[in-house]
Design a binder for these strands. Structure first.
Lengths: 207, 207, 207, 207
DNA sequence: TATGAATGAGCGTTCATTCAT
DNA sequence: TATGAATGAACGCTCATTCAT
């Protein structure tokens, strides 16, 4: 019974924590780390500034945690797709499709993916980027394994290093999605994943 | 005679302007917009802070102009490559090579290319991104024309929309270069451009 | 019966009050008024912050009361010494000895005595200082009476106003004790009270 | 000529620095370190907050420098008194007189002398106290030398260790002055230095 | 009654910008 | 014209105090 009471309190705290992180994530995504003040986040989350500091020890910490959570959710979803018992072509198709779907549903949150080469003016950002990098690397390795497996079976040509191919696929989808966010009318992906896949599957020059 | 004096003055002013922009560009590239103060730029350029405000109306303006100049220089170099009287395959190969060379020579300045979807914390940055976007779009169209031309000649398969292909090529090179900057040992490009081209040229699955 | 219950409750409350004051006193003595937070005191006393505000209306109030209590205890001990039925020389000797002993036993609490001329940043401190001043004044008068009595008997020379002498003795002991706390090796008092008394008893220049 | 211009600038800067330090010193003396905000000091000195940070790198730094300057001025004046070519009795008399005069003229600034045993809540204060301690020690040694010299000549009795005597004299004057500040009517010193000296010179009990 | 989560005023500090020289 | 001293709004963060439970 006491355990239950404690658990309710904990759940309440967790809910508040999430609310703060959600407000922070939205604002950081919209205006960037330096463009958002703690006061602004507090207002958006309908808490006092002081309350933010109960849950997060600094602005940098809040930034990191709110951004990382979203990344983990996203990477997790993509990871699951690769575990399904289908052939390599289907896995890649599903991966591209899943990434597109996520973007369609979370258009406002995509800043996360920008984890390459921002500059080190703030250590919180650098740290976050490193963590995201690590997550991404792990996913890349899984995708590379799909390419490798397809090559072994003879389904895929050996047109390049599997890891490089994985990174290429990631980057193509990635940059198309960024373009699409800015001008959704102009780009076929994420609605039509085949446009992306064709670039990889069908060589521009065939022997 | 007076015209000449004025002109000399103007040239002098232009020289100073460039010096400030060079200092600004270096520092912004190293430490990011928020990581650099006007005082720092003034020190580096060996001018007084006040002087910076004679040439540029705000920090954001200086950021914009200094970054844009570098972009123009870079885009200009790539544009020239496409004008050379060679076949389509060679044009693409040269383009990829030129981009790589530029990176090898200007590793410290590459932040410029990050002109996709950064957030609107500062209107100057948004504006800059729009301008860079425009420049990039124009280059993309030229590259798309190369694909189109190759397809018409039958050199290239019609595996996708020429503009999409152009963007894909741009993005693959781009993200490989960013990866390479962080860990030069691990990536073949920019030293070996063929790794990139093979992905585009040789389909993973050939009919 | 009800009276007894109430009385027990009251005693319980008094016990809690003392616990808080003890914790507060220790911390204030160690780190000073501004160096201690209410949370810290609450933790040390094993109460919730809110509870502190049931017993004391503010931090300043708690500071005042906790410091005053210690002073009263100390002044009371010194006062008792003067009531013993011995001659004037012995009274002074015992007084100096008692003060020294108190310091030896309460080295960590001595900040109390610093009740001269601290600044008015917090009205609670000013008020406290006034109250301590009053206590001290009363003790000083008792000591002055010892001097006066000794002079009347002819044991003491009339080298100055008795109250001034009392204050001088107080100040000499006081400042030696403060010095001793910082560097116990270097000072003879409080171990050897005669060093202090000699200054008062034996004139530097004798007629 | 240029040297002169520079010197004028420097003098102007020095004047401003002194103005800030004067405002800071007054306020710190009145309300204590924690009782004064940088804004308050800026207002009092008729500068903007930012300007304070041009001259002093932090609040602690300003506190230290403003307090230390006053101490040095004061200690310097006392030191000079001891260098005059008069006998030991006169030296002590002059010292006590000089200290009294300083207090009469600078009644509002005396917090300086409180450099014993405040607590370490702020490192700036601790550091300052250490520095003041050192200055004071050096003066104490000079005064001790006067006692020693008087003892050698036979002018003074050997009633105690010279350094201890120096410290005693310092403390007696010191605490009388503090008392006097709070209630000038009641105390003879600083107007009449002999009251103090008699305590030291004429033993309460003479053999 | 006792709690401690929540508050928000107020702090020290920075830095883009201005303007008297 | 070029300067750089001076500005002050705005920031991240703390902690004495309150009040719903």
């Amino acid at each position: 019974m006491k355990g239950k009471r404690l658990s309710r309190k904990e759940r309440e705290r967790e809910r508040q924590r999430r609310e703060i992180m959600a407000a922070a994530h939205t604002l950081f995504s919209e205006k960037g780390y330096h463009g958002v003040s703690m006061q602004e986040i507090a207002d958006q989350a309908e808490f006092a500034v002081g309350t933010l500091y109960i849950f997060f020890k600094s602005k940098g910490d809040l930034y990191q945690e709110s951004m990382l959570e979203e990344t983990e959710k996203f990477m997790g979803q993509l990871g699951k797709v690769l575990d399904e018992p289908v052939d390599e072509v289907a896995k890649l198709r599903n991966l591209v499709r899943a990434k597109g779907t996520y973007f369609l549903n979370n258009a406002s949150k995509i800043r996360i993916f920008h984890a390459e080469l921002r500059q080190a003016s703030d250590s919180a950002i650098t740290e976050l980027d490193l963590k995201i990098q690590t997550k991404r690397l792990s996913l890349m390795k899984d995708v590379a394994a799909v390419f490798e497996s397809g090559m072994k079976k003879g389904t895929f040509q050996r047109i390049g290093d599997p890891y490089i191919l994985a990174k290429s696929l990631d980057n193509i989808t990635h940059s198309f999605l960024l373009s699409w966010i800015e001008d959704p009318e102009q780009y076929p992906y994420p609605e039509d994943p085949d446009v992306i896949l064709n670039i990889l599957f069908k060589g521009l020059i065939q022997d």
